[in-house]
């Protein structure tokens, strides 16, 4: 039972990371109908920037905040420069451009920082926290906390600020929003910026666990895809919940199902994606897509 609780909590911690990355994917998908394959690499790149800042002697949380700012501007710039020219292009074009972005970020990170794994500091104490008979990793709890804070602030931003409202309007009905005086193009760019920021948080929270290297987000991205698919690509809340569910499932399956263990982890994510897409393509909380013929 103790092991079970431990595994659930540590599943929630990784699930929070999957959930935030899934949320970043969903934010971009809702605003621009693009599934951003480069989301993981953007997060990885931000984490490397954070590593540089921390190594330059900045305190962790200052570096953290600075990285978020850089990630936001970076995401904004990527939308303006790379994505905007192909905004109305066929799906294939957009997928290819995103893949192009993925390999550029991946290789530039490898070029600048080399492919050797680097340790990344955690801001939380190493000593596990004991509640009753159960021990929890401090980083797990901290990461979960940070993720929840980010998600909550995003919720408040979209729900209670004018800018948030404008962004939701731009995503829902670009033409009418433009007629109301909302600068739709810029709203989409801000959406990319915010997605990059959320991704950066996920990257910095997962890096102490998986170590920093240019390919570190590959496995996490596929789990984020699984989370977004499970929750529904049209539902931000669903994506986060999907992430938590997937994180817990991953941990429990890894612990209790002998033949899967850790060796087939990615295959579990593949199975989740395929099953959801076949059984309920809109996900648990998404709307079914409707097309005008």
């Amino acid at each position: 039972m103790d092991i079970f609780v431990q595994q659930v909590v540590s599943g929630l911690a990784t699930g929070g990371i999957y959930g935030s990355l899934a949320l970043a994917l969903v934010m971009i998908y809702q605003a621009t109908d693009v599934v951003n394959y480069a989301q993981g690499e953007m997060a990885m790149f931000s984490t490397y920037l954070a590593w540089t800042l921390i190594n330059a002697g900045l305190p962790y949380w200052v570096a953290f905040a600075a990285t978020l700012a850089i990630a936001f501007v970076g995401g904004l710039a990527i939308e303006r420069v790379v994505i905007r020219p192909v905004e109305n292009a066929p799906v294939l074009t957009i997928v290819i451009v995103c893949i192009g972005l993925l390999v550029i970020l991946n290789s530039v990170a490898g070029w600048v920082y080399s492919y050797i794994q680097k340790p990344f500091p955690s801001p939380f104490p190493e000593k596990p926290i004991r509640i009753g008979n159960v021990f929890f990793g401090a980083h797990d709890l901290g990461a979960l906390g940070v993720t929840l804070v980010v998600l909550l602030s995003l919720y408040v931003f979209f729900r209670y600020t004018t800018l948030g409202l404008a962004m939701r309007a731009a995503a829902q009905n670009p033409v009418s929003s433009r007629l109301c005086g909302i600068r739709v193009g810029w709203m989409l760019a801000v959406g990319w910026g915010l997605a990059a920021l959320v991704g950066a948080v996920a990257g910095m929270m997962v890096a102490p666990v998986v170590f920093l290297d240019p390919n570190m987000m590959g496995g996490i991205l596929i789990y984020a895809f699984a989370s977004a698919t499970l929750g529904g690509f049209t539902s931000p809340g669903g994506a986060v919940l999907g992430g938590l569910i997937v994180g817990v499932i991953e941990n429990l399956v890894g612990t209790y199902v002998r033949f899967i263990g850790t060796e087939l982890k990615l295959t579990v994510a593949l199975a989740v994606i395929l099953v959801v897409l076949i059984v309920k393509p809109s996900g648990l909380f998404g709307r079914a897509a409707v097309h005008r013929v």
Partner: peptide, 26 residues
């Protein structure tokens, strides 16, 4: 199953397949 998946979703499912295949082989 790919029949039910349009553009983006098919790309996603196949991307996941590509990521998972080395593990399956091992």
């Amino acid at each position: 199953p790919a029949l039910r998946l349009e553009g983006l979703y098919l790309a996603l499912a196949t991307f996941a397949l590509a990521l998972a295949i080395p593990q399956i082989l091992k």
